[in-house]
Design a protein around this nucleic acid. Structure first.
Lengths: 350, 350
DNA sequence: CTGAAAGCGCTTACAG
DNA sequence: CTGAAAGCGCTTACAG
């Protein structure tokens, strides 16, 4: 697409360090010294080399550099997330990126869509590229990678989820307190007089979704309320599906819920839209896990249990780079939860 | 963090192809053949090699592979965006990622925050990692990279923006029709009876923001309306800043606008919040560039000129891989615009 | 069908 | 302060 530079020795291929050395009339090693900013080089040589670099538009090849250096410096890390188009994950990515930048490190990211095969494939892809470390959202049970020792020598921080299964894992974890968050949401509704409280969320095969359901059940049990199985719904994939699902569900139901716990941002968006379309937004109380843009401007305002995606990403990044710097303490388990936000929808009484 | 595998020859370092060859009792080249799925290998050898690979948990090093292969296959591409936490850009990233996946290619992405120095730094970082191609949002005037021939041999697709300046560039472009979109928004408001129409947007030093302002001015000129400079505001950085800015601006203004064009998603969110907080949401008409989550559930619903981030990303990715496959037609300029969406806020009359 | 040698672009370890 | 040689982990080009 672009034109090659004015005639020089490197027609076609990119100039190499040897090309620079020849142009500058010095040895390969001297160029290497200049490129890496090593002190002990005669200023006049530095001049000549830099001139040659400028003239040839030489850009060093970090892949070649690291082939010999082996893993001495981190040049890129990997982030396996579920879907980068979900604002929760893109917020986390931004947080990781900020920490990586401080270490002159770039982030390779990819969406697994919760498919364990794809998750494993991506982890392998990252290993093949020799990322210095990985942040992984291990959603998708049955991952072979997570249980193998394939990732030895590569620090891993689990974010948002942990692998399911009985065995403990040796990795660091950064996530919100899914169980306590959901418990808090449900008991908030119960405290406002509700007993027919519904739970809408992702498949319970998902670590975070499972804990959130547990938290919901905790609150119901604490209040001695029997859970009506007809009020526990899972399986929507996006906001559009949840909208349709909620409308069908509410219209078929004999005894409607007076309050709903939405366990995730897309669930919340679909459900709130459904309630508005049915004209029930002032009748049925709703609380959502994850904050949503414009939530405060709805009528009623949407009460939520927020997460702090940017902060989660930063912490995961910091821990990862601590590991890369040699920190070898026992696995870190950072499980936090910002305060619940009341905006109206969660304070509707039955 | 993790334990090394049971005793084998590669204590400490990752196993190499040579380790596999020794374990399997074959030559280096035979392992290479098996790893790359070349046909002409005796089945029994394939067995032995695969067993050794399993045993050692060997993962090939693609960086070493490509050192010799040079740019024959694309293993990663770069995406320089403005802010991955902005849903517009994360949607685009998702679209690029989908196309890259079809080519077994990973995406390296990074946020420039619109800083030209950072933009140049990121482009250089990507070149150093020898990405096969790049999608770039060239926001930030004064980039040296974009005007140099530093990127020769590396296909580049510009997304959302193009470099500012008099000179033409030889790169492909995928973006929405900023000027026409904004013209449409303003003339929609004018058609509903407004003459005091305000424009709130990013700095005019930004390609897209500039065009959107032009489109606004086009519509005003077409309607023979003089633009009041007090009604053209730029400079907010995020929704929170825009909210404060709009409230201050509206309270200081003698003659308020009856309608507002918000040129970007964060501008829209901040402005709509400000109007709601001032109780003016039914008094002043608003239209926004970019669709926003929950926009349809507000009172009144938010009318927008949407973009299709996923689609933009996909097209940029497709064009990039066409170039990588050898397509050498003249630069592609894809400038599209989905239909305007009426939801109420843009149809308020003065 | 299999393998020994040279080379990709750089760094390390060593000698001057 | 400078450079020639060996090597990082793989592939290419060639010979058998």
């Amino acid at each position: 697409v672009n034109q090659p530079p004015s005639a020089n020795a490197t027609s076609g291929r990119r100039p190499t360090m040897l090309d620079v050395a020849r142009t500058a009339g010095v040895s390969l090693k001297s160029v290497s010294r200049v490129v890496n900013g090593e002190a002990a080089v005669r200023p006049e040589l530095v001049e000549r080399v830099n001139a040659a670099i400028q003239h040839l538009r030489y850009v060093p090849d970090v892949r070649a550099r690291h082939l010999r250096q082996q893993g001495s410096v981190a040049t890129s890390i990997g982030f396996v997330l579920v879907d980068v188009a979900n604002p929760f994950f893109s917020g986390v990515l931004r947080g990781i990126e900020e920490v990586a930048r401080q270490h002159d490190c770039l982030v390779l990211s990819a969406s697994s869509d919760g498919d364990p095969k794809r998750l494993d494939q991506l982890i392998e892809d990252f290993l093949e590229r020799r990322v210095a470390g990985m942040v992984i959202v291990p959603r998708g049970s049955g991952s072979a990678m997570l249980s193998s020792d394939m990732m030895r020598d590569v620090p891993v921080v689990f974010l948002d989820c942990e692998p399911l299964g009985p065995t403990d894992h040796p990795f660091d974890v950064v996530r919100s307190d899914h169980r306590e968050g959901a418990r808090r949401m449900a008991s908030h509704l119960i405290r406002h007089g509700h007993r027919r409280v519904a739970f809408l969320g992702d498949d319970v095969g998902i670590f975070s979704a499972n804990l959130r359901l547990q938290g919901f059940l905790d609150a119901m049990a604490d209040a001695l309320i029997d859970v009506d199985p007809a009020l526990v719904i899972t399986g929507g994939r996006d906001a559009t599906e949840w909208n349709a699902l909620v409308r069908a569900w509410l219209s078929e139901l004999d005894s409607k819920p007076t309050a709903i716990v939405c366990a995730q941002n897309f669930v919340t968006i679909g459900t709130v839209a459904a309630l508005h379309e049915l004209g029930l937004q002032h009748k049925i109380a709703v609380v959502g896990y994850d904050d949503v843009e414009l939530a405060g401007l709805l009528q009623p305002g949407l009460s939520v249990q927020p997460q702090e995606p940017l902060q989660l990403g930063r912490r995961a990044g910091e821990i990862l780079f601590d590991r890369l710097a040699g920190f070898s303490g026992s696995p870190i388990h950072e499980v936090g939860l910002p305060p619940f936000v009341e905006r109206g929808s969660g304070e509707i009484r039955p």
